[in-house]
Amino acid sequence: MVGAAATSAERAKGRQYENLDSNFIFMPFGVETLGPWGPEALFKELSKRVIESTGDPRAGSYLGQRISLAIQRCNAASILGTVSRCGGFEDVLDFI
């Protein structure tokens, strides 16, 4: 099912912080690496508010692009972090 991993991650994170002090507002933010955002991600609301505050109708799209790039950078760091344990970058490419 599309989005199942993001939804599952949000639920798990919600359980982890369910006892957080009521002075805080906690909202889990699940994003699948190659796919959809979790239902609690509130991306549409964030995007709408950025557009309203900047007056730029493209601002919401820019926000999505920035978040997507951050995810891609973290994925690359995760892969490159395993290279020394694999014996070289060539070994990583064999798995792809």
Rank of each mutant, 00 (worst) to 15 (best):
K44C: 09
V2W: 08
S84N: 10
Q65Y: 13
S61E: 06
T82D: 12
G87P: 00
F43S: 12
S53H: 15
C74H: 15
E18Q: 11
V83K: 00
V92D: 08
G88Y: 05
C74F: 15
I71A: 08
S8D: 15
T33S: 08
G81T: 04
M27D: 10
F24M: 02
D56P: 00
E90Q: 06
I51S: 00
G64W: 04
I25R: 12
G81Q: 02
A70N: 08
R15C: 03
R15T: 04
T33H: 09
I25C: 10
A12T: 10
T54W: 04
R58L: 07
L80C: 04
S22H: 05
T7R: 12
S78D: 07
S68M: 13
E40Q: 12
S53V: 15
R15Y: 12
F95D: 09
V2Q: 09
T7A: 14
N23W: 06
G81R: 03
R58Q: 08
S47R: 00
S68G: 12
F95P: 07
E10N: 03
F43Q: 09
G88V: 07
L34H: 13
I25E: 10
I25H: 14
M1I: 09
M27R: 14
K48D: 13
F24G: 01
E52S: 12
L80Y: 11
N19D: 14
S53P: 05
E32G: 01
Q72V: 15
N23S: 04
E32Y: 01
A59G: 04
G35Y: 00
E40A: 11
V2N: 09
V50T: 05
C86A: 15
F43R: 13
F89W: 09
E52K: 14
S78Q: 12
S22I: 06
I96Q: 11
L63H: 02
F24T: 01
E32F: 01
P36Q: 13
